[in-house]
Measured scan of single mutants.
Amino acid sequence: CHSECLGNCSQPDDPTKCVACRNFYLDGRCVETCPPPYYHFQDWRCVNFSFCQDLHHKCKNSRRQGCHQYVIHNNKCIPECPSGYTMNSSNLLCTPCLGPCPKVCHLLEGEKTIDSVTSAQELRGCTVINGSLIINIRGGNNLAAELEANLGLIEEISGYLKIRRSYALVSLSFFRKLRLIRGETLEIGNYSFYALDNQNLRQLWDWSKHNLTITQGKLFFHYNPKLCLSEIHKMEEVSGTKGRQERNDIALKTNGDQASCENELLKFSYIRTSFDKILLRWEPYWPPDFRDLLGFMLFYKEAPYQNVTEFDGQDACGSNSWTVVDIDPPLRSNDPKSQNHPGWLMRGLKPWTQYAIFVKTLVTFSDERRTYGAKSDIIYVQTDATNPSVPLDPISVSNSSSQIILKWKPPSDPNGNITHYLVFWERQAEDSELFELDYCLKGLKLPSRTWSPPFESEDSQKHNQSEYEDSAGECCSCPKTDSQILKELEESSFRKTFEDYLHNVVFVPRKT
């Protein structure tokens, strides 16, 4: 048989008469490798580009789960590009990614509803959504962080984005990388972005840091009482949809009607710091009717980097990364020049730590249904340095008659930039024990000054392991946590139920 035959053949030295091919099969003959313009397919066939392209389009058009959109890589027609490569849609070739590779997620039936953290986790790592997304989240724990972890990498949506009755959302900033909504599939009414009845939605994105392009379709905003109209108009300008909307697409009466839409800028007039305090004062603000001013709200939190936005980490279910302080308005003076500047002394802060701070007014709604208010920009203030805590785990070892090696770990709280350490030492008198000992005694162990690591005695271990207080009263049991108490109650309830079950099964009433 021919060298490319495997198993047997019907005619000697003829690659077209093989029972099976050793390498690849091409047009009725066995070959060692697939010549151009053919590609290896499933490690035994040679196919042309049209064959591989037909497989790709067949799966793409069917949208069946589990099928493969075949691509070409290293002269092979394979189910998908290997790690580190992405497909070129024009020629199906796998090309190296520039940075992290995109991950295209194809949605069944063309859309997916995100109504819980669990459903959001199914899209973790996706960068391109081939379909439409509907966000409908009523509640949950730590929602802002969970949504950002699972949806934060999405850069492109081919269909539309719909935010509907998501009472738990305060902001859409968890879509931190969303840059493009194509609108290839539109919501009824030709809408590519749809926001309806979101009672706590206050911000779409921080438009000073976020760009969003909507290729096709219109915007729809109705019944978002805490979303200011200025935020919607800003989205029109940034996304390129200005002029597409009709009169009733953006409701003037049901958007922002319960919001404090600040239209003035508060400026800080005085800032002073110490290692654990920050004193702030800002310019006074009074609405047209000074009785509408209820006070100020001061927001602050630790910020290692200057990239904080107002609604980071917030949701309507209680999660809030900001510390909020309510401040009463100052006494009002008739003389504008003698107006008191409101302020606040922030206490209990960490030394040498940068804080993000902003302040906003708290006002009631005027009778004319106009909203007044003022808010400052987010500023960054760093507390002063102070003395560091003591170095940890000092170790001293003498390696000769004239040297001592000293080692330690950095302090747990540096409280500033540590530039150097101060080492103090003092000579001590020799131990009298060394002169009084009889060095001729056998088995004498000389006193040693070398360091030995501390260890816990058996008594201390027994005390720590004991669940009861000892007789001397030195140790006591740790208080039980809520989960331990709940577990004990469940076990007790189970024992009672099981005992009742045994009584009912074992003891049967005697027939009379």
Results as ranks from 00 to 15, higher is better:
residue 239 S to D: 02
residue 297 M to T: 02
residue 353 T to L: 06
residue 319 S to P: 10
residue 374 A to L: 05
residue 379 I to H: 04
residue 394 P to S: 13
residue 303 A to Y: 13
residue 389 S to L: 12
residue 161 L to G: 00
residue 160 Y to F: 10
residue 313 G to K: 14
residue 191 Y to L: 04
residue 173 S to F: 06
residue 159 G to V: 03
residue 248 N to Y: 12
residue 248 N to C: 14
residue 331 L to P: 04
residue 304 P to T: 10
residue 365 F to L: 09
residue 342 P to M: 10
residue 177 K to Q: 07
residue 177 K to F: 06
residue 261 C to S: 02
residue 288 P to I: 12
residue 352 W to H: 14
residue 352 W to S: 14
residue 239 S to H: 02
residue 213 T to Y: 07
residue 333 S to Y: 03
residue 240 G to Y: 15
residue 357 I to V: 12
residue 257 D to Y: 07
residue 172 L to I: 14
residue 281 R to M: 09
residue 294 L to A: 05
residue 191 Y to H: 10
residue 308 V to N: 04
residue 390 V to L: 07
residue 380 Y to S: 02
residue 259 A to L: 12
residue 145 A to E: 13
residue 312 D to A: 06
residue 363 V to H: 07
residue 180 L to P: 00
residue 150 N to K: 10
residue 311 F to T: 13
residue 303 A to S: 10
residue 173 S to W: 07
residue 339 Q to L: 13
residue 250 I to L: 08
residue 399 N to P: 12
residue 231 E to F: 15
residue 140 G to H: 13
residue 237 E to N: 13
residue 289 D to L: 04
residue 241 T to S: 10
residue 122 E to D: 06
residue 179 R to D: 04
residue 132 S to Y: 01
residue 149 A to L: 08
residue 140 G to D: 04
residue 408 W to P: 15
residue 258 Q to R: 12
residue 299 F to I: 07
residue 328 D to L: 04
residue 155 E to P: 01
residue 115 D to I: 03
residue 259 A to G: 07
residue 384 D to C: 07
residue 226 K to P: 02
residue 292 D to S: 06
residue 134 I to K: 01
residue 369 R to V: 09
residue 301 K to F: 03
residue 179 R to G: 10
residue 188 I to Q: 04
residue 155 E to V: 14
residue 394 P to E: 03
residue 373 G to S: 04
residue 302 E to D: 07
residue 239 S to T: 06
residue 333 S to W: 02
residue 248 N to W: 12
residue 219 L to F: 08
residue 200 N to W: 02
residue 381 V to H: 02
residue 285 Y to N: 09
residue 139 G to R: 08
residue 153 L to C: 13
residue 341 H to K: 08
residue 287 P to M: 11
residue 255 N to T: 11
residue 199 Q to V: 12
residue 236 E to K: 09
residue 305 Y to G: 09
residue 387 N to T: 06
residue 153 L to S: 12
residue 201 L to K: 00
residue 397 V to Q: 14
residue 349 L to Y: 00
residue 319 S to C: 09
residue 302 E to M: 15
residue 347 R to K: 14
residue 122 E to A: 15
residue 114 I to E: 00
residue 132 S to H: 03
residue 187 E to C: 12
residue 251 A to D: 04
residue 246 E to M: 05
residue 310 E to Y: 05
residue 347 R to C: 12
residue 149 A to V: 14
residue 159 G to A: 02
residue 153 L to T: 11
residue 136 N to Q: 01
residue 268 F to Y: 04
residue 323 T to S: 07
residue 351 P to Q: 07
residue 326 D to M: 07
residue 332 R to W: 07
residue 103 K to V: 10
residue 227 L to Q: 02
residue 239 S to W: 03
residue 317 C to I: 12
residue 212 L to Y: 02
residue 222 H to W: 10
residue 160 Y to K: 13
residue 227 L to N: 00
residue 302 E to P: 08
residue 153 L to H: 10
residue 119 S to I: 15
residue 112 K to T: 05
residue 405 I to R: 06
residue 132 S to A: 06
residue 253 K to R: 07
residue 132 S to F: 00
residue 247 R to F: 12
residue 344 W to F: 05
residue 388 P to L: 14
residue 318 G to V: 05
residue 162 K to P: 00
residue 273 T to A: 06
residue 247 R to A: 11
residue 253 K to F: 10
residue 150 N to V: 02
residue 380 Y to V: 05
residue 248 N to Q: 03
residue 112 K to P: 02
residue 141 N to G: 11
residue 410 P to F: 06
residue 264 E to W: 14
residue 333 S to G: 06
residue 294 L to R: 03
residue 167 Y to L: 15
residue 250 I to N: 14
residue 121 Q to R: 13
residue 107 L to A: 09
residue 139 G to S: 15
residue 220 F to Y: 05
residue 402 S to V: 15
residue 341 H to F: 10
residue 104 V to A: 09
residue 320 N to T: 14
residue 114 I to M: 08
residue 327 I to Y: 04
residue 159 G to K: 01
residue 158 S to G: 05
residue 134 I to D: 13
residue 371 T to A: 10
residue 168 A to M: 02
residue 214 I to S: 04
residue 234 K to Q: 10
residue 183 G to K: 02
residue 303 A to F: 08
residue 238 V to C: 15
residue 241 T to M: 14
residue 288 P to A: 10
residue 265 L to S: 12
residue 122 E to C: 03
residue 384 D to Q: 02
residue 365 F to Q: 10
residue 223 Y to D: 06
residue 225 P to W: 03
residue 249 D to Y: 12
residue 358 F to L: 04
residue 232 I to S: 01
residue 106 H to C: 09
residue 235 M to V: 04
residue 399 N to V: 07
residue 158 S to I: 13
residue 221 F to M: 14
residue 300 Y to G: 00
residue 243 G to Q: 09
residue 235 M to W: 03
residue 177 K to L: 05
residue 103 K to N: 09
residue 200 N to S: 08
residue 325 V to L: 11
residue 317 C to D: 13
residue 374 A to R: 03
residue 195 A to M: 13
residue 309 T to Q: 12
residue 144 A to I: 02
residue 131 G to P: 01
residue 410 P to L: 10
residue 127 T to R: 11
residue 120 A to F: 05
residue 143 L to I: 14
residue 301 K to Y: 03
residue 402 S to R: 14
residue 388 P to I: 06
residue 157 I to Y: 00
residue 118 T to R: 09
residue 115 D to T: 12
residue 206 D to R: 03
residue 373 G to I: 04
residue 211 N to G: 05
residue 340 N to T: 14
residue 224 N to P: 00
residue 390 V to R: 14
residue 208 S to A: 15
residue 329 P to S: 06
residue 150 N to S: 11
residue 238 V to G: 13
residue 351 P to K: 04
residue 216 Q to L: 10
residue 181 I to A: 00
residue 116 S to Y: 12
residue 199 Q to A: 07
residue 367 D to R: 08
residue 241 T to K: 11
residue 170 V to R: 05
residue 170 V to C: 09
residue 372 Y to P: 10
residue 169 L to E: 02
residue 400 S to D: 14
residue 180 L to E: 10
residue 164 R to P: 05
residue 224 N to M: 10
residue 122 E to V: 13
residue 132 S to V: 02
residue 176 R to S: 12
residue 179 R to C: 13
residue 118 T to F: 13
residue 296 F to R: 00
residue 254 T to H: 15
residue 243 G to F: 09
residue 274 S to Q: 07
residue 176 R to D: 06
residue 391 P to L: 07
residue 322 W to C: 02
residue 326 D to C: 03
residue 256 G to L: 06
residue 303 A to I: 13
residue 357 I to P: 00
residue 341 H to N: 14
residue 225 P to H: 08
residue 391 P to R: 03
residue 206 D to N: 08
residue 351 P to M: 04
residue 173 S to M: 09
residue 258 Q to W: 14
residue 198 N to D: 01
residue 370 R to M: 03
residue 325 V to S: 06
residue 253 K to M: 12
residue 106 H to P: 10
residue 177 K to M: 04
residue 241 T to L: 14
residue 289 D to P: 02
residue 284 P to T: 03
residue 293 L to S: 04
residue 304 P to L: 14
residue 178 L to E: 00
residue 162 K to G: 15
residue 397 V to Y: 14
residue 138 R to H: 15
residue 187 E to T: 07
residue 109 E to H: 15
residue 107 L to I: 05
residue 383 T to R: 00
residue 244 R to H: 15
residue 247 R to S: 09
residue 105 C to G: 00
residue 127 T to P: 04
residue 283 E to P: 04
residue 312 D to R: 14
residue 114 I to W: 01
residue 221 F to G: 03
residue 166 S to H: 02
residue 121 Q to A: 09
residue 137 I to S: 05
residue 190 N to E: 07
residue 115 D to M: 04
residue 248 N to L: 11
residue 354 Q to S: 04
residue 166 S to K: 00
residue 202 R to V: 11
residue 153 L to E: 15
residue 214 I to G: 01
residue 268 F to A: 01
residue 160 Y to E: 03
residue 209 K to P: 04
residue 251 A to F: 09
residue 339 Q to K: 13
residue 240 G to W: 15
residue 200 N to P: 07
residue 253 K to Y: 09
residue 384 D to S: 07
residue 110 G to P: 05
residue 187 E to W: 15
residue 255 N to C: 07
residue 248 N to K: 13
residue 214 I to T: 09
residue 337 K to A: 12
residue 403 Q to R: 13
residue 323 T to F: 08
residue 147 L to A: 04
residue 221 F to C: 15
residue 243 G to A: 07
residue 355 Y to K: 01
residue 304 P to V: 09
residue 187 E to Q: 08
residue 116 S to K: 14
residue 213 T to S: 10
residue 385 A to M: 08
residue 143 L to S: 14
residue 205 W to L: 03
residue 354 Q to R: 11
residue 376 S to W: 00
residue 186 L to K: 07
residue 214 I to L: 09
residue 178 L to Q: 00
residue 153 L to Q: 09
residue 239 S to F: 03
residue 331 L to T: 13
residue 247 R to C: 10
residue 112 K to L: 11
residue 353 T to C: 07
residue 281 R to F: 15
residue 285 Y to F: 05
residue 172 L to W: 00
residue 190 N to L: 08
residue 300 Y to R: 03
residue 220 F to M: 15
residue 385 A to W: 06
residue 175 F to S: 00
residue 301 K to T: 05
residue 328 D to S: 08
residue 307 N to W: 09
residue 328 D to R: 09
residue 372 Y to R: 07
residue 309 T to M: 02
residue 151 L to V: 15
residue 340 N to L: 11
residue 398 S to C: 07
residue 301 K to L: 07
residue 123 L to T: 03
residue 377 D to W: 14
residue 249 D to T: 14
residue 232 I to T: 12
residue 342 P to E: 06
residue 376 S to N: 01
residue 187 E to D: 15
residue 361 T to K: 01
residue 383 T to A: 03
residue 244 R to V: 08
residue 307 N to S: 11
residue 295 G to I: 04
residue 298 L to H: 00
residue 119 S to P: 05
residue 245 Q to N: 12
residue 196 L to C: 06
residue 189 G to W: 05
residue 166 S to M: 12
residue 338 S to T: 13
residue 174 F to M: 05
residue 246 E to W: 03
residue 355 Y to E: 00
residue 342 P to H: 13
residue 271 I to M: 09
residue 338 S to G: 09
residue 303 A to D: 09
residue 214 I to K: 01
residue 167 Y to A: 15
residue 217 G to A: 02
residue 335 D to W: 13
residue 357 I to H: 00
residue 219 L to W: 08
residue 273 T to C: 14
residue 121 Q to T: 10
residue 242 K to H: 12
residue 350 K to A: 11
residue 205 W to F: 12
residue 288 P to G: 03
residue 265 L to G: 07
residue 174 F to G: 02
residue 187 E to L: 07
residue 315 D to S: 11
residue 175 F to N: 01
residue 319 S to I: 11
residue 215 T to M: 08
residue 190 N to V: 12
